[in-house]
């Protein structure tokens, strides 16, 4: 099945981003396709390349980048939400791209399932 995932919260502040990642990983492990992850609201902070967690903590941003690289997951950051929060092409982590809200609607239309994680 083709999955779309929505992430509405930033990394480290709320569990939503971790839950979304673990869900995506489990979906892929079960043979499904994660077609797109859409980051909205504070969720856009998942895309910041400038993130530096302590060494004994998980690296949420790199984890997403790796997922995109290994499983061709399209990581899309909402442009309006990103600009409001200082996320731009110059500090965007690998595998992410900035685009419009239409990408979220498109995921809703194209995917068999859309699952939202937030606060």
């Amino acid at each position: 099945m083709k999955f779309g995932i929505v992430v509405n919260e930033g990394p480290y502040q709320h569990q939503a981003s971790d839950s979304a990642y673990l869900f995506a990983k489990a979906a892929i492990a079960a043979g499904h396709e994660v077609w797109r992850v859409f980051f909205y609201h504070d969720g856009v902070n998942n895309a910041s390349r400038l993130t530096e967690p302590p060494q004994d903590d998980r690296n949420i941003v790199n984890r997403w980048s790796k997922l995109a690289d290994e499983h061709k997951v399209d990581l899309v950051v909402c442009v309006a939400a990103a600009l409001r929060r200082g996320i731009k092409d110059e500090n965007l982590a690998a595998g992410f791209r900035i685009s419009g809200l239409g990408q979220l609607v498109e995921a809703g239309i194209q995917c068999d399932r859309l699952v939202t994680f937030g606060d």
Partner: peptide, 19 residues
């Protein structure tokens, strides 16, 4: 919180996709 405002933005885009 900002959710109400940002929800409204998605609503308008969704309508533009003729859903």
């Amino acid at each position: 919180t900002i959710y109400a405002l940002e929800s409204l933005e998605v609503v308008l885009i969704t309508a533009a996709f003729d859903q």
